[in-house]
Every structure is written in C-alpha cells, then in structure tokens.
Nucleic acid binder design. Sequence first.
DNA 1: ACAGAAATGGACCCGCCAGTCCAATCCATC
DNA 2: GATGGATTGGACTGGCGGGTCCATTTCTGT
Lengths: 198, 198
Amino acid sequence: MAARTLTRKGEQTRRRIVLGASAEILESGVEEMRLEDIMARTATSKGQLFHYFPGGREELVLAVARHETVQALQEQTAAFRRFDSWAGWQRWRDDMVAWYHGRGLRCPLLGLLNADASRRMPEAQAVMVAFMADWQAVLIEGLRRLQAAGCVAAHVDVAKAGAALLAGIQGGILLMITTKRIDHLEAAIDQAAAALRA
Amino acid sequence: MAARTLTRKGEQTRRRIVLGASAEILESGVEEMRLEDIMARTATSKGQLFHYFPGGREELVLAVARHETVQALQEQTAAFRRFDSWAGWQRWRDDMVAWYHGRGLRCPLLGLLNADASRRMPEAQAVMVAFMADWQAVLIEGLRRLQAAGCVAAHVDVAKAGAALLAGIQGGILLMITTKRIDHLEAAIDQAAAALRA
DNA sequence: ACAGAAATGGACCCGCCAGTCCAATCCATC
DNA sequence: GATGGATTGGACTGGCGGGTCCATTTCTGT
C-alpha cells in the first residue's frame, strides 16, 4: 500500500507525518484535520504526503488509527496486567483518570471511532472493532487474574463483566469529552468494582 | 432565530425539513449529510432551506439536535418512570435493547455528539451536555424511587450510581454502533443492576 | 379582489481542499 | 563521478457543496 523501498530518511519523514497527523487529529478531530495543517506542522510538502501515503488522506488517517490503537493497547496492557488486588485496581483507576487529565480530557481515538468516519471508511472501523476486542480481552484476562487471586467470587461471569467494564470506560470517556468532566468515568469504574465484589 | 411569521403551510414544510434532515443524519452521519440530500428527500428547494433556516446548515443541524434530544428524553422519561421493581427494570432494559434493534443498531444522537461536530459547533455541544444532564437526572430519580421501594439499599449513593449507569449506557451504544453488536449495552445495564443490588 | 407578506424554485457564485504533476535534489551504489 | 531511484517542493486543477439572489407563485387579511 505504501512505498515499498524506504531509506532511513524516508522512514523518518513518514513517521514524522504520522505523528504530526496524530497530534493534529487529537486537537482538531478527524473531519477538521486538513492536509495543509499537517504539512505546516511537520514541515513537509504535499508531494511528500502523497509520496508516503499514495492513498491520500484516507490512508493517512488509517495509519494514524493503527498507530494510536497499538499505542493505547500497549499502555493498557501494561497497566492492567500489573496487579492482582483491589489496591492495584484502584491505582490503575487513578492512573487512568490522571492520564486523561494530563491530556486535557481528550481522547486520541474516540474521534476516529465516531460513527461518520466509520461509515466512510470501513477499514478504519475494522481497526476500531479489533481494538475494542483486544482491549476487552485484556480486561477479561485481568479480571480472571483477580478471580484467581480470590478478589472476585468464582461464580462471576468475567467475560460479561469485561464487556460491561469496557462499556463503562468508553461511555465515561465519551461523557468526559462532551462534558469536560471526568466523574462519569470514575463512577463507571467504581461501579464495576462494586459489582465484582458483590 | 428562524422566521418569525410562519403560516400553517410554512410550519409543515419546516417540520418536514427537520424530520428529513434527522433521517438523513441517522443514515449518513452529520458530516456526510448534504443539503442536497435533504432537498431531494423532502422535496424542497435550496430557497426553502435557507428561508426556514437562515443560519444555513449549522442552524438546521442544531434544530435536528434539539428535536432529537427532546424526543429521546421524553421516551426515556416515560420508560424509566413507569416501574419500581426489578421486574420493571428488566422490562425497561429489554425494551431499550429492542428499540435499538428496531433502529438497525443506530443511534440518532451519537453522531451529533461526536467530538468533531462539538468542536465546530459549541451550541450543539451545549445541547448535548444538557441532554446528558437531563437523562442522568431521570435515571437518578428512577433509582431513588427503587430505593424508596426497598429494591436498593439505603446506603447506596444513587447520584453516583446514576452517573455510572449513564456511562454504561452511552458506552454500550457507542460499542453497538462500532461493533454492530448489542451485548455491551446489555452487560452494562445488567452490571449496574448487580451493583445496585449488592 | 387586491395589496403585501410568505413560500417556492433554481440558477449562479465562490472558497476550500484533496489530489495531480513535474521539475529539482538528494543519496546509495557501483 | 555517474546513474537511477528515492525524496522534496510547490504550482495548478477540479469539483464539491454551502450560501446568495431574485423571479415567480401562493397564501392571508381586509
């Protein structure tokens, strides 16, 4: 899809473009993002953009989506794998809240996942679906570990609990973006914990 | 904001335009929605669109947002006010799931709430924020009724539970839109019930 | 019936922005 | 140091679609 032979310099430029586009999308949203803005931000020309992303705008957005999803998944995996107690859960929760605070209550991915973009770009939607599935798997795995550690009763359906937790997180983020407040996210995670302890 | 004097015919046309735009947005998303599509669908001319919505596209979208939010809020209020037992809750849950199924697993509002649109149109965002607040209030009121009926323990913080429930619902809908599956929504609502019963 | 206002149709304009194209450079390799 | 491919710059195009404008028709009130 992209150029087949990339020199080191080429790879650098390509990477610079992806990161710039990513930042641009985080700030302005996918729809508002203009190729011109990216060119300005990354000090590249239109020729370069289309050299590294022959598919144009769409291919670039897709590249950003892939980049952001693997990034997010790595972070979430690292954070959620590290504990097997409720104290650890609490720390994970607080870290997550702090992370979004640090990002100005924005989310790099939710803009990409919006219904419109998906409709126009089925590939992007596929990326998002896969991402959600992966994230849910990470959550479920973590819950299973908590269960093994005795923090969660054996009769609890961790698969379903993982689905609910993911929904709570996503909804919390969505509400955070619109309302610029983070209490929904907190409440959602806390409620998941409450349900799991019951 | 709109024309001050509307004949009956005028009101009909205006209404027709809003409904048509609403349907168009539901199907294609806000960003994809073209004035031309609405004209075709509602059998109106560009002159009419700008006659009834001098603010153009933006004012029209806003009108749709207002229309959809009051609609949704009425329905939710009616549905959530009608019970004070867990059986009633379950019926409400099933109705909600069925409602979305009937709509082809779409949501008339989530497209409007997407981050981009909000950024570009602060007024639309304000409408969405108010809508979320109202919905949450309806949920909390309902939970309080359940509490009064003895279904929920007295020590439960219904305000926080309402926030969590709203987050779960929104996340469930979001995931429904991307994955075209409804189990996240179900799991989220069920988990809220589980937490409340604890 | 006769103003005057409201409603309608649609041609036209114009800015924006993704995408094209090619000429100019850089650089790896022989 | 020459050759060909990778890289870069940027002028130019094309059309899409929101918004303007005005002529025409229809309605309302007296």
